[in-house]
Amino acid sequence: MKLPPFEYACPATLDEAIALLASRDGDAKAISGGQSLMPILAFRLASPSLLVDLKKLKGLDQIKIDASGITLGAKVSWRQIEDDKRLATAHPLLQEMISHVAHYQIRNRGTVGGSIAHADPAAEMPGFSVTCDAKIVVKGSSGERIIPAGEFFEGPLMTVLEADELITEIRLPPWPAARRWGMLEFARRRGDFAMGGVAVFYDLDAQGRAVDAHVGVIGAGSIPHRVPGAEAAINGTTVDETAILAAAKAAAAGVEPLTDIHASAAYRRNLISVLLERALRAAVAR
């Protein structure tokens, strides 16, 4: 469909953008790449009275890597992550996960901040941020907040972001070089929204046992989330076949997927279990 009518503003500074968002009492929306918002407008799922374009805001499109971790500016595009050679070692899981995001043309315009603000439960970036304990930095009329990703998502397309708040940065903890990880998702067409996806990583202690396992799922409920039962099944083990099968079983029990036109809840539950099993085998072999 054609888009509903709205006004458009293209402020030059972050403060102006926040003031514009605040001026409409929840009826204004920020747009950057627009790769999530434009379809929402085309479906007329939203009819904001004002779009605030972030195009002119400076300094939000940088990927910074140092000893304290990785910082992604909210306007960093999928393509920038894909092309940044430092990330192959600085955060291989990020590059792998991002390789599943949408298609070539969308990857050129879509941004990490936009995907997190949009909060599709099947999208990679929200799931990645939850799995990796990311901190989401937001700025609004009342100042800056730093929100753990695990507390950011409230439901499908719903977040704790206030109407006058903008995401400015996503901060990731550093990634140890020896970390074991795996990530798999299943979609009918590569780049489409996943019917289910799993990311897993853990470190090995001096005895070769897994510690600090993180298991995150997408497309398996109303928000992306970690699966503590599966993590517990991995921690303290050598991630042998018994542990892998136990984790896969725990993953099936630890998700509440929904039935929709693409797949039944039972199918998705089994999918998550199988994907975790395979992702763990990949992690062991890495």
């Binding site: 747009i31 298609h103 043309q105 050129n108 315009r109």
Partner: peptide, 21 residues
Amino acid sequence: GACTIIIDGAAVRSCLTLAVQ
């Protein structure tokens, strides 16, 4: 993907871009 055009060297979907942008 039918509406793909190239903006500043990058292929993009022109239906997901506002003209004003």
